Simulated assay, not measured.
Amino acid sequence: MVNGRLSHIELFAFDHEPSTDRHLRPGSLYLLLKLTCGECACYGQCVILPDDGVFDLTKWGAYLRCIRHSTAQEILQTVTLQEHEWTTGQRVLLHSALSALLQDTNTAAALPLSVLFGESVSYYSILT
């Protein structure tokens, strides 16, 4: 398990799976959550289909503010207490990143910043 507190939370949205030619179902978004804790960065990912076709990543990702400044154990407690208020996509995304954080593994082989920023259609960052 990674020790220390989160130093950065980043959420990227893509209209395709990054660094691949795999296209998603029309209207779907591939979301990638990057949690940084010290020198370790862990990733979570999910695919969502926004309800109304209009998607605001900042609003959708606002739930992540509740984990700012948190340790992995504190995030786990927050998830247990609050996940009933979140959408399935929000739960899946945070669970996958948290799993990597608790196991101290870098999932979803780190994509270069050029890919993350060059291919994403939207970006949301929470400084902690």
Rank of each mutant, 00 (worst) to 15 (best):
A13I: 07
V47M: 07
A13C: 04
K34H: 11
P50V: 11
T71V: 05
R22F: 11
C66Q: 12
E39L: 13
L24A: 04
K59G: 07
D51Y: 14
L11I: 15
P26G: 03
G38S: 04
C40P: 03
L49K: 14
D21L: 13
E17T: 13
C40L: 14
K59Y: 05
C40I: 15
R65I: 11
D15P: 03
P18D: 06
T20G: 08
I48W: 02
H69C: 10
D15Y: 09
P26V: 13
D51P: 15
I67P: 00
C66G: 08
L31H: 02
C42S: 05
E74S: 08
K34N: 12
I75V: 15
A72Y: 03
L49Q: 14
G61K: 03
V47F: 02
F14D: 04
D52S: 15
C37F: 05
L33V: 11
T71H: 00
D21S: 12
H69T: 12
Y43C: 07
A13F: 00
C40N: 10
R65E: 10
Q45Y: 06
P18S: 11
F55R: 01
E17Y: 08
R65T: 13
E74F: 05
P18Q: 06
P18W: 06
T58Q: 04
I67V: 11
A41I: 13
D56F: 01
C46Y: 04
L32G: 12
V54H: 09
R22M: 14
L64A: 02
E10K: 08
L64P: 00
Q45L: 09
D15G: 07
D21N: 14
V54F: 09
A13W: 00
S70E: 03
H23M: 15
F12M: 07
R22Q: 15
T58F: 05
V54Q: 13
Y30M: 11
L32N: 06
Y30N: 10
I48Q: 01
G53I: 12
T36G: 07
L49N: 12
L57Y: 02
W60K: 01
I75Y: 04
L76W: 04
R68A: 13
L11S: 05
R22K: 15
V47C: 05
F12A: 09
R22G: 08
T71S: 06
L32E: 08
A41H: 08
S28G: 07
L76A: 13
S19M: 14
D15R: 10
L31D: 02
L57Q: 01
